[in-house]
Amino acid sequence: MQFFARRLSFYLVAFLIAATINFFLPRIMPGDPLAIMFGPQMARMSPETIDAMRDTFGFSDAPLIQQYFQYVVNVFQWDLGVSTKFFPKPVSEVLADGLVWTLFLVGSSTIISFLLGSILGLLAAWFRGSIFDSLATPGALVMQSIPSVVICLVALIIFGIGLNWLPTGYGYDTSLDPQWTFEFAGSVLKHSILPIGTLVVFQMAGFLIPMRANMINLLGEDYITMGRAKGLSGSRVMFTYGARNALLPSMTTLAMALGFVVGGSFITEVVFNYPGIGYIMFQAILARDYPLVQGHMLIFTMVMLTANFLADLLYVVLDPRVRHGGEA
């Protein structure tokens, strides 16, 4: 329990720091922070809206510390101001619309790449030195070092435009109404193949490489030799003796990887015009909609912290040492 209390308070502080960065950025830029934040859009807004925005972001004549306090209270109430691009929709609403799509993309691609990457890494370690290993391992590393922009664009050129197999943009066929029908679900699925596929390519190596390294280190352990000496089948030693333990460090990688995927999914959404928060962020950047840009960072911080917390939970389930109150 103490373990969780410590982690939760750490996440709280981390979120506060993200909010603090947001608070200070417009203020350390040269010029009037209010004009920087709302810029050209200010002319379109009514005086009441400007006052409300001033309130939300704590722009007042009060001392800085008071402004800061006001801003933090608003952020914790999830009052992120009004989007200037999607005026008069509040930022929190704009982001909530996109979040479903992004979670769908990131969630399914992470699960697929975790399973695929772990299994391939396991096999690469087990058949170390084989042709499979010397192709898969450096291949995965090379894949990992190609920016997602490139992967997405190449996939778009080949499958979307060259072969014309798959739709090139948006989350579903816009001629359909978003309803719970098979036709709509099929359209969503079809539109998600390219984005999810590119994300899997981009992420898989992150699971394959550590899994292989862990497994190779484990294969030298006595209990593995013991398992073999007992005459257990190869697959039993591989999965229940080796994989179970090699998987443990991968769990922390899983949480760390999510931060990386966030970056990848952003680009994927931009290239495929996918209606998630990454694409919304892109539109916000183009329109210099700073409240929305800031809200985007806060919501992604939330996603990251939640993912980390889930990783903590998983760790407790998988590692008895942590469960029984020891240090992680």
Binding site: A14, L25, F266, M297, T301, V303, M304
Partner: peptide, 11 residues
């Protein structure tokens, strides 16, 4: 490490 890198850079 727990702050999302790319959104931070974008901001």
């Amino acid at each position: 490490l727990v702050l999302p890198q790319l959104p931070l850079l974008l901001v």
